[in-house]
Structures are given as structure tokens and as C-alpha cells.
């Protein structure tokens, strides 16, 4: 029923990519990942806690036969740090995929596009499949494509804000500007936000807080799965044109 999509030749059915942060427990996360139907999950790279080794390991709760693990460079503020984290992620996960984040500002968590471009350039040369988190800016997205990004991931709204897609027209322009997959990353707060993003024609949606921050993350994960599928189907179906005035659905002929 659902069309497939590709990131550098890798085929995926689910268009929902989920984060693994902020869950109350690994078990709830595991159930939410399952309910979301996602095939790609993103993870952060951090120091192993050597003083408290009793802590369970995230990877024990992610079936790598089922999920593609996408290491990210979350929390990095310079190209140098992001490149370092990407390399460590590749080593830990034995995968060339990286969700590249280079943050430029603590309060908004907006990306530093200059550093992002630089890091993308370096990592592409090292053979990485780079998926950069960026602004909803078509010029930057085009530049990222030109330096070899495998997809672009414009934000819908600030990370963790749950405000939904704030500027759908910018996302539309990005879709027309690049020929690589476009994934809305960040800002999705509830199911309708995900549907709106997908109805624009993007290839996928990435979210973390939208699911993990819900009162019932497992149910919200299921809702997001349906919302993404729904939005994709509506996009493929092609919506009716918007009109200013009413058009009657019932015939006027045969009225008494």
C-alpha cells in the first residue's frame, strides 16, 4: 500500500524516523519504537559511565536486525566537534550514516549553517552518508546538496518546541530546490503536525520529543505512525484545490 523511498540506495518503507532520548525507561522507549513502525532510529554518542556500570545499554533495547541505527552529532557546536562525534559514531555503530547537527545557538538550537556545510563537506569526503539538520532555508539546502549531503533535514520549528511546521511554504520551496530526500526534522508536536508535513510532499519526518514527551508515548508513537502514513497517502492522492466560496456537493436538480 505504501511506496518505498531511498537514502543512497537503501530502501525504507516507513517514513517516520524516531529519536531515542527523553524516555522514562528503555522499556517504554522499546515499546514506542515498536509502535511507531519506524525503521530508522537516531542515537547520540556519549562517554561510557565508568563509575556506574550497572546502567543498562541502549543497544540492548534496539533490535539492530529491525532498525537502522542512525548516529547523530547532537549537542555539538563546532564543525570540529561534529566531525569527531560522527567518526566515533561510525566506529561504535559500524555504519556510515550520520545525522549531522552543528548547533549555533543554545536558546533556539538553530543550526550553524556555515559550520554545517563545512562538516558535511569533510564527512562526505570520508565516505559518510550525511543527513544534515538545517534551517528551512532552500539556499542552504541546495548548498548542502551540492557538497554531497544524502538528504536534507529542515526543521519544522525549533527542536523540542512542538510547534508544528511553522513555515510550510519554505518546506515547499526546499522540495522544489533539491533533488535529494527532504525530511522534516524537529518541531512536530502531535499527529496533525506530522500529517501536515507529509502532505507537503516531504520524504519523511523525524521526531523525538513529540513521542517521548507525550503522556503516553507508546500510544503517541502509534498515532504518529498513522499520521505519517495518512499524510503521505493524502499527498499522493492529490488534494482538491482550495476555493474561497462554497460549492454545493449535492445536485440542485430535482429539488422540490
Amino acid at each position: 500500500m505504501f511506496d518505498k523511498w531511498l537514502i543512497v540506495g537503501r530502501e525504507f518503507r516507513s517514513r517516520l524516523i524516531v529519536g531515542t532520548g527523553k524516555y522514562e525507561s528503555f522499556e517504554i522507549m522499546r515499546q514506542a519504537l515498536e509502535a511507531s513502525g519506524a525503521e530508522i532510529v537516531t542515537v547520540a554518542v556519549r562517554r561510557v559511565n565508568l563509575t556506574d556500570k550497572s546502567k543498562e545499554s541502549l543497544l540492548d533495547y534496539i533490535d539492530q536486525e529491525k532498525f537502522t541505527v542512525l548516529p547523530n552529532t547532537a549537542g555539538c557546536y563546532t564543525a570540529k566537534d561534529a566531525i569527531r562525534y560522527a567518526r566515533l559514531g561510525r566506529e561504535a555503530g559500524l555504519s556510515d550514516l550520520v545525522k549531522l547537527e552543528v548547533i549555533g545557538d543554545k536558546r533556539t538550537l538553530f543550526p550553524d549553517n556555515e559550520a554545517l556545510l563545512e562538516a558535511t563537506r569533510v564527512l562526505v569526503k570520508e565516505g559518510f552518508i550525511v543527513l544534515p539538520y538545517t534551517n528551512d532555508d532552500s539556499v542552504v539546502c541546495k548548498k548542502l546538496e551540492d557538497v554531497g549531503a544524502a538528504a536534507v533535514m529542515p526543521l519544522g520549528a525549533p527542536i523540542g518546541s512542538g510547534l508544528g511546521v511553522q513555515n510550510p511554504n519554505n518546506i515547499r520551496i526546499i522540495l522544489e530546490s533539491v533533488s535529494i530526500p527532504v525530511i522534516v526534522d524537529a518541531g512536530v508536536g502531535t499527529a496533525s503536525d506530522a500529517t501536515i508535513a507529509m502532505e507537503l510532499g516531504v520524504d519523511g519526518v523525524l521526531m523525538n520529543t513529540g513521542i517521548a514527551g507525550a503522556k503516553d508515548p507508546v500510544s503517541m508513537a502509534k498515532a504518529m505512525k498513522l499520521a505519517v502514513e495518512s499524510g503521505r497517502l493524502a499527498f499522493l492522492a492529490g488534494r482538491m484545490p482550495k476555493k474561497l466560496y462554497a460549492t454545493a456537493s449535492s445536485p440542485l436538480e430535482g429539488m422540490l
Binding site: 531515542t20 532520548g21 547520540a44 556519549r46 543497544l59 547532537a74 549537542g75 555539538c76 566537534d81
Partner: peptide
């Protein structure tokens, strides 16, 4: 020596290595 692994992520976290 830095020894790292994957954790739930998580964009608000700081870069802990540095």
C-alpha cells in the same frame, strides 16, 4: 582515552567529551 557508546538522543545534551 575516551570510551563512548550510544545513548538515547537527545538534542539538548551537551557535548560531554569536551
Amino acid at each position: 582515552i575516551e570510551i563512548v557508546h550510544f545513548v538515547g538522543g537527545g538534542k539538548e545534551d551537551k557535548c560531554l567529551i569536551n
